[in-house]
Design a protein around this nucleic acid. Structure first.
Lengths: 347, 347
DNA sequence: ATAAATTATGAAAACGTTTTCATATCAAGA
DNA sequence: TCTTGATATGAAAACGTTTTCATAATTTAT
């Protein structure tokens, strides 16, 4: 009290003093620098623990120009798929001593651009991004690439080559499997409510759908294919269009579960029996698909696996002895799996 | 190129040089220090914009001992209520120039303790926490309080007085309203599946339930009251107990929607008509409650409002001209609202 | 045994800000 | 006009690390 002793947190200098060593040695010992005697390192680690030393990230980051922080930009944390991905990313990154700063674009390109700017200014060590569906120009990520900050895109990824790592679900396979499943269940006249083709996601799913149809020699009715924002309202509108004519489809492949749910609601209201008259498959395996009746067949995307892959990749790219480019040249593809439920049952 | 000019980011020194001023003045101008001439400030701000200057958080934080970062500890980001709260907190904090570091305890007290430790070491300017249901000892937050770092608890808050700000839903009112609603719909024999009484949440809801029953002069059957972890399995077990005897309840008030959903499933399987033979009300207004059939009456907690209140409070407590304690003495109570659906309908 | 190479440590600078202290300028009061 | 007090700026220290450079200690090669 009478002394000028500070009471807040112990620093590297306190350890140095206690051990009669220089701060430089303490720093080296704590950072696993090779040129530190085994005994010295042990002493330091022990004393650090004893004093309850915690590295000051700001001082460390200022000097070394590394923040041990990763930035994440996503449309919304409250979307089921993303919430699950984040859960894993956050948990796994924490194990590796990294912080995660989560930012939401609210599906606005302008916001996404602004957030990228902010995160760049915050000197994050790496950036993870699931872009907006409207993001076509990826210029706001250039800064990162130019300064060798790894960028990882997942879910919604650039269509054109970009110096970043891509991690995505197997959308082609998912759509192909779902469509094949509907066909195998006896459907012949299949409609497809898809998202906008500006996104790789929906391009791939559209291709998977077409491949399955073609493979089974089924005609594709262009009036039954919709490319639109996958909202509840849009889905209802599409259903109205589909069922206002005399010839109606006997199955629907929807690119997300919100659309599939809306379709069920519409069918119930219109007295269309599911799965007898109309079979439905959705995408993402949202928890709601298991709850609604009839329950909805959907494509599981394994968000936790996606998160795991992201962190694995990142840790590799950020490891001090990583060599070469700051991105993987080959996209990492995470498998998907069809979860079959009542909405596509044969009875 | 030939010059030693660095190309990375402009600093306060670059602005100083460009304007023939000292770095001190630049800093003051940028931080709205009163003793800076109007013209000077304008010049500085203009030049900063021109040079694309962005404050280096680490240098700033190191010197001023403020990180402009807020820590958040929650059980899981993928729970609907929390996902929504986070969405708002993150968006609003961002507007005020704060970063948010989100950490998940996975509902483990040990993890929660560890995360508190980490966030403390990270020198967050404030901490927001939604504790584990098992958290009874709040000692791991003492450090923050002792060092005048504001702590805000929401949702699950300490029962005993603690030098922190409490933000919670009106659980008493929610339970009271839901129960009264069931009674008004004609129910007389109401069961209650509640969470463990170690948490304020369930204490308040239990009290609200009892108040409503008492007020209407209805007897409370202790065999029909459960205090347990609110999982799907536990809910099914409770339902089995409730319906294995001759005298069965005609309504159920469930402390969360997972339980209410399980109850619906059980009732469907057991051939108990809802709402004719059994009326059900849940809690949280999870999206699934609107989807399932029959749809479930539930208590909306306005997560976005909770998030808004949290940030408001925080910004106030962190504002440089805030005086007095680092916490609010009175808890902030966010209103709730009953959403009436089919599961409690009178027809 | 001596030189050379390797390993281990310390001194001091550096990172980019904020802040204290000193000093200069300015407006107002006598 | 000269003080005074307020306003405005600058010089330099400080925050806690990491890192460069220099040097000391140790091992290996000759």
């Amino acid at each position: 009290m009478a002394t000028g002793k500070k009471t807040y947190q112990n620093t590297i200098l306190d350890i140095a003093e206690a051990l009669k060593l220089s701060p430089a040695t303490i720093s080296r010992a704590l950072n696993n620098h090779p040129y530190v005697k085994e005994k010295t390192r042990n002493d330091v680690v022990e004393m650090a623990a004893k004093l309850g030393y915690r590295r000051n990230h700001m001082a460390s980051g200022l000097r070394s120009n590394r923040t041990r922080t990763v930035g994440l930009i996503i449309p919304r944390v409250s979307m089921f798929f993303h919430a699950e991905v984040i859960t894993t990313i956050q948990n796994d990154l924490h194990k590796h001593g990294y912080h995660l700063i989560i930012c939401q674009s609210n599906d606005s390109v302008r916001m996404e651009r602004e957030l990228a700017e902010t995160l760049y200014a915050s000197r994050v060590d790496a950036l993870i991004a699931a872009c907006t569906l409207q993001t076509i120009d990826f210029g706001h990520f250039d800064k990162f690439v130019e300064h060798d900050t790894p960028v990882i895109f997942y879910d919604r990824v650039p269509v054109n080559p970009y110096k970043a790592t891509l991690i995505k679900g197997d959308d082609f396979q998912g759509a192909y499997t779902a469509t094949s499943h509907l066909i195998a269940a006896g459907s012949k006249k299949i409609a497809h409510i898809s998202g906008p083709l500006t996104s790789n996601l929906y391009q791939d799913r559209a291709a998977g759908f077409l491949k399955a149809m073609e493979e089974q020699g089924l005609p594709v009715n262009q009036d039954w294919i919709f490319h639109q924002e996958l909202s509840h309202e849009n889905a209802i509108k599409a259903m109205q269009k589909l069922f206002e004519t005399t010839e109606v489809p006997d199955a629907l492949f929807a690119d997300n579960d919100t659309t599939a749910i809306a379709a069920i609601e519409f069918a119930k209201a219109a007295g269309i029996a599911i799965p007898e008259k109309l079979k439905i498959a959705g995408y993402s395996n949202d928890p709601r698909t298991a709850i609604i009746s009839p329950s909805i067949t959907s494509v599981e995307q394994f968000p936790n696996l996606v998160g795991k892959r992201i962190v694995e990749t990142l840790v590799d790219l950020l490891s001090p002895d990583h060599e070469g480019a700051t991105y993987k040249t080959e996209p990492v593809v995470v498998p998907v799996k069809l979860i079959s439920r009542m909405s596509s049952s044969t009875i």
